[in-house]
Design a protein around this nucleic acid. Structure first.
Lengths: 115, 115
DNA sequence: TACGAGAATGGTTCTCACTATCATCACGAG
DNA sequence: CTCGTGATGATAGTGAGAACCATTCTCGTA
């Protein structure tokens, strides 16, 4: 399953991943795909993106803190490792009486190929 | 419908909004709620948050560019008007050959009451 | 090797958010 | 008044994801 995930550079839906596995030699059930994805997501090995409303996309990602850059046209996804937003986030949170514990940034735009 | 939306300081699901309307004197259909929410969302009057996986939340928001601060415990939502991330976003995008057209930031944490 | 408890798996069914469809209704022009 | 057009609400349909359960795998013990 991790092999199949690694074969996809961008993000996949659970259903898509499942049918790819079935097209291969695997007999994995859909339930197991969902269970495993949930496990991997808890473990921080895969990221869950919900940009397609109604369906979630999964992506094998580095475990370090990072954000995502998504191409509007071809849906290519790139990790942005450099995040020095901590200061800004904390300040913005503090200004409204919050204590920030997490932040997610999603940048959409056009990739080099689609530009 | 806008009245009912304005009555909710945080975010509501379409289903929740519909049942509130029906509990009142309205005879609005569920389809119309979805239709209207889609319209308002296109017009930029309401924001769509997808932090509850499987269901989308809607919120009456200012039309200016802003981000959201969500309380992990009580789900209170606050708008963050101040966003000077444009520079960082463009730089990060450029570094990966992208042209950024939009960015969304969601900060989760604990609000003053839940802290 | 044989056995058995408990965990993992896969098939199936179920739920429910959301969409499509369609008959009906309101309204405005002629 | 009448026809047409666009909006509305009820209902059925769709599809992602979760719940359930029987079966299979794993592994320690005898």
């Amino acid at each position: 399953m991790l092999q199949e995930l690694a074969r996809e550079p961008d993000d996949v839906t659970a259903q898509e991943l499942w049918s790819r596995l079935r097209r291969g030699a695997s007999t994995t059930g859909l339930a197991t795909v969902y269970r495993t994805l949930a496990l991997l997501s808890d473990a921080g090995v895969v990221d869950v993106l919900s940009h397609h409303s109604g369906e979630q996309c999964y992506r094998l990602c580095g475990e370090a803190h990072h954000h995502h850059l998504v191409c509007e046209r071809c849906h290519r996804v790139v990790e942005v490792e450099e995040c020095d937003l901590g200061g800004w986030v904390n300040k913005a949170a503090k200004r409204h009486g919050f204590v920030a514990t997490e932040h997610r940034v999603e940048i959409s735009g056009l990739c080099a190929a689609c530009r």
